[in-house]
Design a protein around this nucleic acid. Sequence first.
DNA 1: GCTAGACCTTGTAGCGACTACAGGGTCAAG
DNA 2: CTTGACCCTGTAGTCGCTACAAGGTCTAGC
Lengths: 164, 164
Amino acid sequence: MTIGALGQATGVGAETIRYYERIELLPQPARTSGGYRVYRPEHVRRLNFIRRSRELGLSIDAVRELLSLASDRLRPCARVDRLVRDHIHDLDHKIEGLQKLRSALQRLADSCRGGGRVSECRILEALQEAEEALAGPDVECAEEDCAGRRASDKQPKPRRERRA
Amino acid sequence: MTIGALGQATGVGAETIRYYERIELLPQPARTSGGYRVYRPEHVRRLNFIRRSRELGLSIDAVRELLSLASDRLRPCARVDRLVRDHIHDLDHKIEGLQKLRSALQRLADSCRGGGRVSECRILEALQEAEEALAGPDVECAEEDCAGRRASDKQPKPRRERRA
DNA sequence: GCTAGACCTTGTAGCGACTACAGGGTCAAG
DNA sequence: CTTGACCCTGTAGTCGCTACAAGGTCTAGC
């Protein structure tokens, strides 16, 4: 089957399939004399595995690991279990963060009736003014994994203070 | 103050500040004769506004709009209110999607005790086998907004079927 | 055999919101 | 005048695709 047929069979776009091949998530298929990719049933199975894993929110690297684990049928499946449970934990953190965020925003929105002028808008005030205004139980940095976004954490060396 | 001092004052990294300047979220500051950026208190206020909005998960474009709205003190603040409420809705969708995902994964994890071998791992089976295995109440595609990932939706023209 | 046109090929650039370098220049304390 | 913390610009990388451009291949139907 061609790349289009594989796409139909799995619900994955052709460009995504080529992308998976480029990052070596899918093995290189055979080619016709004209250079067309020719896929076989095992490609369908592998790509379906990938799609389902991705739909569950697993990262490409996690999928890669799962595929490698799955290839050795005698290996204990504890690692598989671990991978999935870790991902559940990640999701829990993410969900919790978003819920905090949501209530902070809700508090913000509740403080504004929307009928006034910008000059007396509580939302804009809260964003402009002091830190505590909308700091519920510790919001900050809920979107994604937030890898080291806090530049203020690192405190390198005591330097003279410039005209601050 | 220099870019480093502004970073300290706001908790935003210097590289991010330069990035904000490049995308015109922060105005270009004055410069020393040597080319150093020189910031003033209004930059601190604006950058704090930006940081807080970002921490609440608002997109750069939303922040841009908020800043522009905030600059006209006589304008009605209905649009501000709308922007924030829309974002709350987005969050609701996101949270819901992640929760569905979580329960699908939990079901998966519950089916595996982690003590067996890969060959009898229910998790890997579920990822490999039929569609219904782990389709709880309609999972698919919860991460982010999932913009048109389903390639199988478009069904262009009836073409001859190749050797499929 | 030939044409039409659906399908395929490679390569590159873009998305959002940064982050991380490399290779150099500036600044102020001592 | 040296030291070295700090700053500059520019470019490339992150993640997981998606979209395009310019061209080549394939087969149904004539």
